[in-house]
Design a binder for these strands. Sequence first.
DNA 1: ATACACTTTTAGCCTAACCTAAATTTTATT
DNA 2: AATAAAATTTAGGTTAGGCTAAAAGTGTAT
Lengths: 222, 222
Amino acid sequence: MKKHLTRATKDYLKAIYALSVNGLSASTNDLAKRLNIAAASVTGMIKRLAQTNPPLVDYRKHHGVTLTPTGEQAALEIIRHHRLLETYLHDSLGFSWDEVHEEAERLEHVISEKFEARIDKVLGHPTHDPHGDPIPDLNLVMPQKASTRLSTLRPPQEAIIERVNDEDGNLLRYLQEKSLVPGSKLKIRAHSPFDGNLTLEINGEEIILGPAVTHHIFIKEA
Amino acid sequence: MKKHLTRATKDYLKAIYALSVNGLSASTNDLAKRLNIAAASVTGMIKRLAQTNPPLVDYRKHHGVTLTPTGEQAALEIIRHHRLLETYLHDSLGFSWDEVHEEAERLEHVISEKFEARIDKVLGHPTHDPHGDPIPDLNLVMPQKASTRLSTLRPPQEAIIERVNDEDGNLLRYLQEKSLVPGSKLKIRAHSPFDGNLTLEINGEEIILGPAVTHHIFIKEA
DNA sequence: ATACACTTTTAGCCTAACCTAAATTTTATT
DNA sequence: AATAAAATTTAGGTTAGGCTAAAAGTGTAT
């Protein structure tokens, strides 16, 4: 019996998934901020999610929520939709990488399994979306995500960009202009302990980035 | 100021458009049947649609509804989305013509103008969807629709199928099997005044169709 | 240990869109 | 023209998912 989840429910599950990185539980406040909803509304909704059958989340008052296995499967299904769609919009329909997130955010809730299968096939079963985020496979297994932030590197380290945060279109446009895209190789030249600025070399050019940028770029050591 | 219309609102506008063929107004009952909703709910919703600013429908108690120009534009925008999507799903993603309606029904509400423009371009600005229904152009002008039903023909008339009703997947699968698709040429061989059956020749073969089928096929004279 | 600042929950309200049952209006039939 | 049948509207209720304001819990710093 496959339940129909509402759009709001799916949005909560995705948000809880995103905020539960290291087995931590997601707090009411953080969820409220991420979803642009009042904290009180989040409390109410979480209670409902905890009382579905089967329950989608585990909830203890004042101690945040985590996903149950059922809830996590549902979240992964939506994330798979989202990232396949981003890839499809980018690769097959010519959307720029700063446009795909918003469009996928709406489409992910309504596409059928058939649609998912078709674009997955057309794309040749991609493993990463245009921002470098891994796409859960058909069995909804999420590959490991790069978690080292560029902001943590110090000279003279080198690295390759693996992925970037996909939620801020302005940031993405800026990154693209500077070739700060997945796959790019870079060297750290200097670090300012005062403002956290990093001077780095990329494509033979030298650029200086503040923490507001470097915090959103994830790398693997070269 | 472009208003955001809810999904329910869009569904009502589409249904009213479909039922208002000859300048007639759509009745509460017919809307209820088409939308699978209780008649009382339709009355309530229609009242709300008539009180938006600008109003989307004209409503007189006990006399049905018609779309205002604003409402009609909105309906045509959705229908354009729907038919472009059907065409895209069919031509570019390999959906069969009996599957596209259901999928488009969900997608039509969430795609952006950008998405619309992209698939329109990829398809080469198509004028008809896979069932032969005309696609409103960018200015939302709806081309004339064929309105002669196959059921009205008598021997020895000949005709070409222009479009078929797209809502019943089972019917569509049957029609495809018999090559009863837009563009096919056929000749009427016989008509039974008792049961309305038509005997016709298509592709050199002779087949007999009842009114439940011929009523849903629209033709132009050959 | 007390006090203040956050965070979270409770309580009470709201809206969109549905529902059923009962009342009313329109239409069709004699 | 009266009445029966059908269509429509009213009245009152439900659910999901929001909101604000106030209460209560948690944590931190003195």
